[in-house]
Simulated assay, not measured.
Amino acid sequence: MKHFFSIIGGMGTIATESYVRLLNHRVKINRDQDYLNYILVNDAQVPDRTSYIKDHTKPNFFYDLRDDVLGQAKLGPDFYVMPCNTAHYFYEDLSRLTPIPFLNMMRIAVHQFVEKYPGETNIGLIATEGSIYDHLYEDEIHRVDREVEFGGPEIQPMVNELIYSDIKEKGFVDGKLYHRILQKMHDEYGCNVILLGCTELSLAQEKAPDHPYNVIDPQSILADVSIELALKIRNGMDPKEACSKYLYK
């Protein structure tokens, strides 16, 4: 197969399925050959990211991802994507394993926030406890001179219920709970824009988009960027040149 990219997924599987579904439905097609070429590594056995980030005595998820990246490197993809926000804890280590471009979903999303909402000086963030605990998104947002609003102590339990109890454990998106979280972040904590810092939250946005709030959805953004790059490369652009636009430092 020529001109394909590798998806390091399975964290979780239903969220990865959402990313692939966005790819397949957003690319413009007239025939089978118009779809994108990609290899999906749905590594559902990657240890829990938040558990390790909060407690380093827990299984380290880096080694599973390292094996996935190196295994794909042998096949020669044009670039990598990893539709899991919290797994970007090891982004720098993983990207150094190979010279193949490795997109950073978090940085791409934060830069799109700045471009789309240049007048907003802060952004609401809902995410896994792991992403918040290690300041993964907070650091990226501060790098572009913006501030972060996390909401009050009632927000994280609601987010955890949506991510873990509903989506990861039951495969169910509680649209009403998702909307209630967005409403509280907007009405009670003044967030005109809310960043969805977990791909399960991106799944919630895909399944329950009928709300009036402005969201930055990294998985949706990553899908659009993946399509853009894959088509440029298919049409003859060098992969490193195509990806350079999105390899923010």
Rank of each mutant, 00 (worst) to 15 (best):
M1D: 10
I8N: 07
G9E: 02
G9L: 01
G12H: 01
T16P: 09
E17M: 10
E17S: 14
V20H: 00
N24D: 02
I29G: 02
Y35N: 05
N37W: 03
V41Y: 15
D43S: 15
V46W: 02
D48H: 13
R49K: 08
K54D: 02
T57A: 11
P59G: 05
D68R: 10
L70F: 09
A73S: 14
L75N: 09
L75V: 09
P77N: 05
P77H: 03
D78G: 03
Y80F: 15
Y80G: 11
M82F: 04
P83E: 00
N85M: 11
N85G: 06
H88A: 06
Y89E: 06
Y89C: 10
S95F: 04
S95T: 12
R96M: 01
L97V: 12
L97K: 09
T98E: 08
I100Y: 03
V114C: 02
P118A: 08
G124V: 08
L125G: 14
L125S: 09
I126H: 01
A127D: 01
E129P: 00
E138I: 15
H142I: 01
E147C: 06
E147L: 11
V148P: 00
Q156G: 09
P157A: 05
V159I: 14
V159L: 04
E161M: 13
L162H: 06
I163S: 06
S165R: 14
D166L: 11
K170M: 08
F172I: 11
K176I: 14
R180L: 12
I181T: 02
I181S: 08
Q183M: 13
K184E: 11
K184Q: 09
M185D: 04
D187P: 08
C191G: 09
V193F: 08
V193Y: 00
I194H: 10
C198W: 00
E200W: 07
A204M: 09
A204T: 04
Q205V: 01
D210A: 14
Y213R: 12
D217S: 09
S220L: 15
A223T: 01
A223D: 00
A223E: 00
I227H: 06
A230H: 04
K232D: 09
N235C: 05
G236I: 12
M237K: 15
D238C: 09
K240W: 03
A242W: 06
A242P: 03
S244E: 11
K245E: 08
Y246K: 11
L247I: 15
L247C: 07
